[in-house]
Design a protein around this nucleic acid. Structure first.
Lengths: 350, 350
DNA sequence: CTGAAAGCGCTAACAA
DNA sequence: TTGTTAGCGCTTTCAG
């Protein structure tokens, strides 16, 4: 049960601990091949494996990263960020401490201290959604912000490129022939930054397509299935010539609600109404009938990026600004050409 | 930027490092009140906070727990287990290393070694679903199994009480007056243990209610929305007097598929068909229309339990057998009395 | 009641 | 090419 130490290897190989250390760390430059092999064999024979704590105390590097998050670990949503961060850490021989603070400031402060006391080599501060946050004062410099941006800057950060994601979504709709495209936005006192960014993308595409934005098509609702359904109902209650033929939804849950509203009126997707979501949320986007075309959040890639800069493997291109990670569109079956009646620039046929 | 050490505090307080250590660890028995206060004040003044690595090296306790999982951290499903484990760890001043192995044996082996090298005080081995697993040979004794059971025993373990969960689900249906109750089971070559356990619960309730189990009502399908829909279609294709009035589904996604199948035939839930799911999966159970009555998996509680035994705060009641955690039923709106035509023991009225 | 000194397991100067 | 020694920052006897 007792761990075998470097001195056991030294004894077994008949050399000093210093030699063992050199060999095992591949500082093998000035070691004879014979002793090198002897040491290596002795090490495997006695089953030696170095004590990282002792090594860390001596070298001042723990090969350990602290990842603090509001609740990405304990919530369904952004777990792929962890996967990305983990993978990079593992590829480089690091272990990660994970702390979910539940957005409690006291817990957060204590977590930062505990991680610092454990001598982590770096920290990552992650949020479940793209947000602007006040960086806790005790955060060490160089801490990487993941899926959030520190209000005052000063830290490397990576966030999704929500504007470009909005562009991709609406372009897909325009490319299918739609011209009356609604944006189902969030309805909150302090909307997430993504809300505005995606809206900007939406407006950009309308502009480049020569479409006058209709304010009546920018509706808001709760970011839930129910909210999406209610917002869609309002849209579908518009007179037929002002009614949208396509919906760009802030997220997939709202899109799911839009499906319900459409089905209740006997509208088929995408024949009668095209829909694009956002998030590519498992259990929602792919399970809908028909499967939802949506914009994916690059959680895994952001996680990798953050860990790479935390480990010093990568340096942010522009240290001043957050790194914008592209949001790829996932083409499924909820987008089609507008219905014939609406296609000819909202002129009725019957 | 340089960390302040215990010797800095000692200097500031005009005492030896030993005294500082004693005071800060509340071994204050044989220390005068005066120096105690002086040391404490000096410590806060210089902003001292002990180096856990150095302390761990000396005391042989790292206040660190390793949590190895197949993929609970990076997948939507069982994250609440982490929350439970985390909370307990934090309440007791421990930090947790999280490693997702993606069920890769090599990764797993290396993770175990890395955690051992980091001198973790204990390990938890967690699975995303209730499974029977072969314990990796290198796992230290005393490792706690979370949401899985080691094939050979020999480790403390906690799993959901799936049999009792099946009982609760089917009892709810029987209590509502149903007698023709189907079980939508998993269709896999190696079904999860929960499949059989829930089926046992199902049979138990039928037996206690004096209902003869009808093999035609035990159907199988893919554990997905599509699978649930297909299985339900087969059930609803039965002649009316053999058709079930209620469905107990292996999971919420299958239940979601059952909703689709029912809706396509114009059947209302729960007026025409009652449905109970399993998992209480966020974004599925609560978002369905009407909200799904289901059995919740006690992820959070299992996570707490596992960490409590890992920390030695709790001892398993019966060290031989896995601890069975109750699965509470979550009553929502998908269960009602059977339709009148079927109520009188499957006799047609028209 | 407090201080001196040893040592946790390892690595890095410096000697030999 | 290898060994000796010191020391990372802390806790813990053991003296005083």
């Amino acid at each position: 049960m007792a761990r075998v130490r470097i001195s056991d290897v030294a004894a077994a190989a008949g050399v000093s601990t210093a030699t063992v250390s050199l060999v095992l760390n591949n500082r093998t430059a000035r070691i004879s091949d014979a002793t090198r092999d002897r040491v290596r064999q002795a090490a495997t024979e006695v089953g030696y494996t170095p004590n990282s704590v002792a090594r860390g105390l001596r070298t001042q590097r723990s090969h350990t990263i602290g990842l603090i998050s509001d609740r990405i670990a304990t919530t369904p949503f952004a777990g792929r960020m962890l996967a990305g961060a983990q993978d990079v850490a593992r590829e480089h021989g690091h272990l990660v401490f994970l702390v979910d603070t539940d957005a409690d400031e006291t817990v957060e402060r204590e977590a930062i201290r505990a991680l610092a006391d454990q001598q982590v080599d770096a920290m990552i501060y992650a949020c479940m959604w793209h947000r602007v946050v006040d960086a806790p004062a005790s955060l060490p410099r160089g801490t990487v912000f993941l899926d959030c941006r520190p209000a005052g800057g000063g830290f490397p950060a990576v966030v999704p490129d929500d504007r470009a994601g909005g562009v991709s979504a609406v372009r897909a709709l325009v490319a299918a022939g739609h011209r009356r495209i609604a944006y189902l936005d969030v309805d909150e006192p302090h909307p997430p930054v993504a809300s505005d960014l995606r809206h900007r993308g939406y407006l950009e595409v309308l502009s480049e397509a020569g479409i006058d934005p209709d304010p009546a098509l920018h509706v808001r609702g709760d970011t839930s299935s129910a909210g999406g359904r209610a917002a869609t109902d309002r849209l579908l209650d518009l007179p037929e010539d002002r009614r949208p033929t396509a919906l760009f939804c802030f997220n997939d849950r709202m899109a799911a609600g839009a499906y319900v509203a459409a089905h209740r009126r006997g509208l088929r997707i995408p024949q009668d109404l095209s829909i694009v979501g956002y998030d590519d949320q498992q259990l929602v986007a792919a399970e809908l009938d028909p499967p939802l075309t949506t914009v994916a959040l690059p959680h895994y890639e952001m996680g990798r990026w953050a860990m790479e800069v935390a480990l010093g493997i990568r340096t942010p291109d522009d240290p001043g600004a957050p790194h914008l990670m592209p949001c790829p569109i996932v083409d499924r079956d909820s987008v089609g050409p507008p219905p014939a009646t609406a296609a000819s620039d909202s002129r009725r046929r019957t």
